[in-house]
């Protein structure tokens, strides 16, 4: 359900400002109670905190001016805005404390969302990322440095791309979604993706398991892992051949382009490709075999092949 934060604040806070303007007994307690209730409601409706801040500012200005015009108590009116703002914001911060850690530890609090997207962060301090996300909606940081977003992966993906764009620089995000009770699995998944992204030297960006399906499936299949280890072993002994595979892969299998990158003669690369095929049984001229060779080299660098 969509919540109009401005209208909600105006409706709920009107009585509080009236009480403060009249400096009626107990208006402070009432203000705290109302702000707390409204804060929880906004949090559970996932209204972005930035939107709440804007709404709060305009509501406060409007109500204060109206009450002052009616000859309200100026000192009390100044105070009521602070009390409401502090209480309202505490609702947005209170949830942060330990929720992510509790979920990772296997505890599912009653107020937890049905599912979460776990985000791993590399290349930037977590605090900056947290505040960038917080401007757009609720985010729960864990002590492990992972972030939890109470939204589906499909929603988190554009959000992460946006935040990454805003932060700029060499930043990698990896994300995975799981139901609240199994977010620890999502954390394992993002860690696995991140390790692969790092070792495969993939450019900064936002990654999901879809981008690493083959690699992660290899790691989980013992027969394939062993076989890939046998494929790549004779190559690793020859750095020139490794370099050739990687250059050819980067050139999308285009030999002429790879030759330029490697500063070698066309016949030299042909000879090297022949050698690679003799050693591995895979033909680097075939794009699928080339991709497998590249993966084998990358995984061997992560020591994933045993």
């Amino acid at each position: 359900m969509l919540v109009d934060a401005g209208r909600l604040l105006h409706e709920e806070f009107l009585a509080v400002y009236r009480a403060a303007a009249a400096d009626a007994d107990g208006w402070e307690d009432a203000a705290e109670a109302v702000a707390h209730r409204v804060g929880s409601r906004l949090v559970s409706a996932r209204v972005p905190v930035a939107q709440v801040v804007v709404a709060l500012r305009s509501t406060d200005r409007l109500l204060t001016e109206t009450m002052l015009d009616d000859g309200g108590d100026a000192r009390a009116l100044a105070a009521v805005g602070t009390v409401l703002a502090a209480e309202l914001m505490s609702a947005f911060c209170a949830q942060d404390d330990g929720l992510a850690d509790a979920l990772f530890a296997g505890d599912t609090p009653d107020d937890a969302a049905p599912f979460y997207t776990v985000v791993s962060v590399r290349g930037v301090v977590t605090d900056r990322v947290v505040s960038a996300f917080r401007k757009r909606g609720p985010v729960f940081p864990a002590t492990s440095g992972h972030l939890l977003l109470p939204v589906a992966e499909a929603v988190a993906l554009p959000l992460c791309r946006e935040v990454r764009e805003e932060l700029g620089g060499e930043v990698w995000f990896c994300l995975a979604e799981r139901p609240a009770a199994r977010v620890a699995l999502a954390r394992n998944e993002v860690d696995e993706i991140d390790a692969l992204v790092a070792s495969l030297g993939r450019p900064p960006g936002v990654y999901r398991i879809d981008d690493m399906l083959f690699e992660s499936a290899v790691i989980r299949t013992p027969e394939a892992r062993d076989e890939l280890g046998r494929v790549v072993a004779p190559l690793l002994a020859n750095p020139v051949l490794v370099e050739t595979v990687l250059a050819l892969l980067e050139a999308d299998g285009n030999r002429a382009e790879a030759v330029k990158k490697l500063f070698i003669h066309r016949s030299t690369i042909d000879y090297r490709l022949w050698q690679i095929e003799q050693l591995t049984g895979l033909s680097p001229v075939n794009p699928r075999d080339l991709a497998v060779l590249g993966t084998a080299i990358a995984l061997s660098r992560t020591n994933s092949l045993g």
């Binding site: 398991i209 879809d210 399906l213 083959f214 992660s216 499936a217 290899v218 989980r220 299949t221 027969e223 394939a224 076989e227 890939l228 046998r230 494929v231 591995t280 049984g281 895979l282 699928r288 075999d289 991709a291 497998v292």
Partner: peptide
């Protein structure tokens, strides 16, 4: 054919959740 020549297809057959994602794609 041997395992290394169909390795990518093989791992996907062995990991049904990966196969599912790819089939949908």
């Amino acid at each position: 054919y041997e395992l290394r020549t169909v390795l990518a297809d093989f791992v996907v057959l062995r990991q049904p959740h990966v196969a599912e994602r790819l089939a949908r794609m």
